[in-house]
């Protein structure tokens, strides 16, 4: 497969350390959209994709900055002895029902005073975590309802598209 034109454009755009840091999420997202595009028809959003509003994420960002950032880092980057809430975090939680993440945050965090945040704050923090990890906000708020959260999973919007199984009898592609 020849490189999709969008690769070259994005790669150029991402020249330089700083630009790249800022552009990576966008770049990867676009890249996968591009990778996936020729292979799959635009799929309807799966029923399990969570929705949340920008207002929720903004409010969550405020709570995060005041209550969580001291440990998990202002940019959710974590540290040697502290789990990040981006990057590896996605790999750890992807495809897990959201009620489990909600339960964890509600029962275990913030570490020094677990369970002290009101439910709506925890929901908004989840909206913030979803946004920071590449899910776009929408119009429907994330519900503060564990049964409904159980129907949604933590998305991995930057995951590479699934590998198509090679048709039987054909050797794996080489160049």
């Amino acid at each position: 497969m020849a490189p999709h034109p969008i690769f070259a454009k994005q790669a150029q755009k991402a020249k330089g350390f700083c630009t790249a840091l800022l552009a990576i999420t966008a770049l990867v997202a676009t890249t996968h959209a591009a990778l996936a595009a020729p292979r799959h028809a635009p799929a309807p959003a799966p029923a399990t994709a969570p929705s949340f509003t920008a207002e929720q994420a903004d409010h969550g960002a405020q709570i995060y900055a005041g209550t969580c950032a001291m440990c998990h880092g202002a940019a959710l980057e974590g540290a040697h002895d502290m789990p990040p809430l981006r990057g590896l975090f996605v790999a750890r939680w992807a495809n897990t029902p959201l009620n489990k993440l909600y339960a964890y945050i509600t029962h275990a965090m913030p570490l020094m005073a677990p369970g002290t945040l009101p439910p709506q704050d925890n929901i908004d923090i989840m909206a913030f975590l979803l946004r920071e990890n590449g899910t776009e906000p929408g119009h429907t708020p994330l519900p503060a309802d564990e049964n409904r959260l159980a129907q949604m999973v933590f998305p991995a919007p930057n995951a590479l598209p699934p590998v198509k199984a090679a048709p039987p009898g054909k050797a794996p592609r080489t160049r």
Partner: peptide, 15 residues
Amino acid sequence: PAGPRLEIEPVADKI
């Protein structure tokens, strides 16, 4: 001079 390169670059169908 800009510091180590830690970027993502798509090459062919790889990342």
